[in-house]
Design a protein around this nucleic acid. Structure first.
Lengths: 146, 146
DNA sequence: ATCCTGACTTGATTAGTTCAAGAAAATGCG
DNA sequence: CGCATTTTCTTGAACTAATCAAGTCAGGAT
């Protein structure tokens, strides 16, 4: 289990000041994968009722810049954050309810990181989003071709 | 070259009424890949100065639903539209200037469409976004590790 | 040509996020 | 430990992209 002290250490190692809003946000993101900003605000306020929404926005940005959390934003969705960073995993998103789950890269390490024609771009990351319907939202006749 | 008559036919084949705003939007998306809504409004108004922004929003949604255009929205960016539909191509996005280019799927047909663990999801599409820096934005020392 | 339905215009409204100025708190130093 | 410096947080407003609603207008069928 991750304790408050662990979060404080993570912040310190990232050269960020340790404040209660930051610990609370970091904790919320760790314990609630793929939470959107609004949920995070709610979670943080369970422990610290007085934090402003900008504090949360600021903290999320600081944590994102520091690499402690990762911001994901499938289209049609608001910004969401997750604590798994640096392991090149991807996401499966439900078209209906927006639910997100992690999936590891299918073909090994990072095979998708080779585009056929990069147009002169220096590519550093390949983001994969699998779109579909989750178990609850999939119609029973999902496997029918039409 | 694609003419107005072609766009009208495309609309008719999609069971959409042929209106000048629709032709103008369809034309704008075809001639300006990855344009955002605001640019499209500007382009449309070059020919039809009086179209409202809602008309453009409405038309873009109708065209998207009809499958004539595709909506893409890398995170941090507003909605963009492109006319290449149904060929499973992906995108490379510049982290700095937001420029977008098409890339064909690297490993053949649609290999990325196999996630390792689908969490019970019925997946119908794998969207790949390659992140990096375009030729203009890439620093000279881009290949240096640090 | 006329009617009916769907599309467009106008204007207001929302949600999500950001900006700005001042107050508060965290770190470093004496 | 207490103070100074610097960053962070609070308060409140503003901004942007997008949507909603009501009424007018135009495309396509009869």
């Amino acid at each position: 289990m991750t304790t408050t002290a662990d979060y404080e250490r993570m912040l310190r190692e990232a050269a960020l000041r340790v404040t209660r809003p930051r610990v609370a946000v970091l904790s919320a993101v760790h314990e609630n994968a793929h939470a959107d900003t609004d949920s995070i605000i709610g979670l943080v306020r369970q422990g610290l009722p007085k934090v402003s929404h900008q504090a949360v926005y600021d903290v999320l940005r600081a944590l994102t810049v520091a690499g402690l959390v990762r911001r994901i934003q499938p289209m049609g969705s608001v910004a969401r954050y997750e604590a798994r960073v640096g392991d090149n995993h991807h996401h499966v998103v439900c078209r209906s309810c927006g639910e997100i789950h992690d999936v590891d890269c299918s073909v090994g390490a990072a095979p998708c990181l080779t585009a056929s024609d990069t147009h002169g771009f220096v590519i550093d990351e390949a983001e994969v989003i699998y779109w579909g319907f989750c178990a609850s939202c999939a119609p029973e006749s999902a496997e029918e071709p039409h």
